[in-house]
Simulated assay, not measured.
Amino acid sequence: MFFSLPRFAYKGWLLSFFVLALSATTVQKSYATGFDTLPKKQFNVLLFTKTAGWHHKSQTEGVKALERLADKHFFNIIWHEESHYFNDDYLKNVDVVVFLSTTGDILNPKEQAALERFVKAGKGFVGIHSASDTEYDWPWYQRLVGRTFSIHPVIQTAVLSKLPNNNFIGLNHMPQEMLWTDEWYEFGPELTKLNYLLTVDEQTYNPTADWGNNKTGSGMGVFHPISWYHNYDGGRSFYTALGHTNAVYNSEFLTEHIYGGIYWAATGKGLKSNN
Rank of each mutant, 00 (worst) to 15 (best):
F8T: 15
F8H: 15
K11Y: 01
L14D: 13
L15D: 12
S16C: 13
F17P: 01
V19W: 14
A21T: 14
A24E: 10
T26H: 11
T33G: 08
L38F: 09
P39H: 03
F43P: 13
T49K: 01
K50W: 02
G53I: 00
G53H: 14
W54E: 11
W54C: 00
W54T: 15
W54G: 02
H55M: 10
H55N: 02
H55R: 13
H56Q: 14
K57W: 13
V63A: 10
D71Q: 04
D71K: 13
K72D: 03
I77W: 08
W79E: 15
E81W: 12
E81T: 09
E82Y: 09
N87A: 08
D88E: 03
Y90G: 10
Y90A: 08
N93E: 09
N93T: 03
V97G: 10
V98K: 03
S101W: 11
T102I: 12
T103L: 06
T103W: 06
I106Q: 04
I106F: 07
N108A: 03
N108W: 06
N108V: 09
P109W: 07
K110W: 09
K110L: 04
E111V: 02
E111L: 00
A113E: 07
A113D: 10
L115R: 02
L115S: 11
E116F: 08
A121T: 10
A121G: 13
A121K: 13
A121D: 14
G122I: 04
G124Y: 08
V126C: 09
I128H: 00
H129R: 06
S130H: 02
S132N: 00
T134Y: 02
E135R: 07
Y136M: 07
Y136R: 14
D137W: 03
P139H: 09
Y141P: 11
Y141C: 06
Q142E: 12
